[in-house]
């Protein structure tokens, strides 16, 4: 058995163990952590497939960049979708005045955001900046 064959067999074994782990974890009472564990293990499996089966370990920067770009865009897509749906339940600002006065104020005053709104915006900005910097 060559070293290359032994390596892919070990990776396959690890993948099956991860499958068993994720299946087992799905039956544990983990509450809100459950999807995080499920997708965390899926990401580990994907990492093994990308690194060993798809040979990213042997590739140069150009190939890794082409693959990484697709992953980065998927991260953008999912985080922007989540940033919309996760902030929909945020309570609205107190009722605004109505009539012509309100229209006047709306032109002059900047839109009001709740503290929670600002917190979300900051979190998403930080996440995007740190993703771009790495």
């Amino acid at each position: 058995m060559t070293a290359a064959l032994r390596r892919v067999l070990l990776v396959w074994l690890a993948l099956l163990l991860l499958l068993a782990a994720t299946l087992g974890a799905a039956f544990l009472p983990l509450g809100p952590a459950k999807p995080w564990i499920g997708y965390g293990i899926a990401a580990l499996k994907a990492g093994l497939i990308l690194w060993f089966f798809m040979d990213m370990r042997r590739e140069g920067g150009l190939m890794r960049l082409a693959t990484g770009a697709a992953l980065l865009w998927i991260v953008f897509l999912l985080s922007l979708v989540a940033s919309d749906y996760l902030t929909r339940s945020v309570p609205l600002a107190p009722a605004q005045p109505t009539g012509s006065e309100a229209r006047h104020q709306a032109w002059l005053a900047p839109p009001r955001h709740s503290a929670s709104d600002r917190r979300w915006t900051l979190t998403i900005c930080f996440a995007a900046i740190s993703a771009l910097r790495t």
């Binding site: 299946l23 799905a26 997708y39 899926a42 994907a46 497939i49 089966f53």
Partner: peptide, 19 residues
């Protein structure tokens, strides 16, 4: 491998979410 990768993420999405 891509076909496999997609399934690796479909599995927790469709099957494990309600297990």
């Amino acid at each position: 491998h891509l076909v496999d990768l997609v399934w690796v993420f479909l599995y927790p999405t469709i099957y494990l979410a309600g297990a």
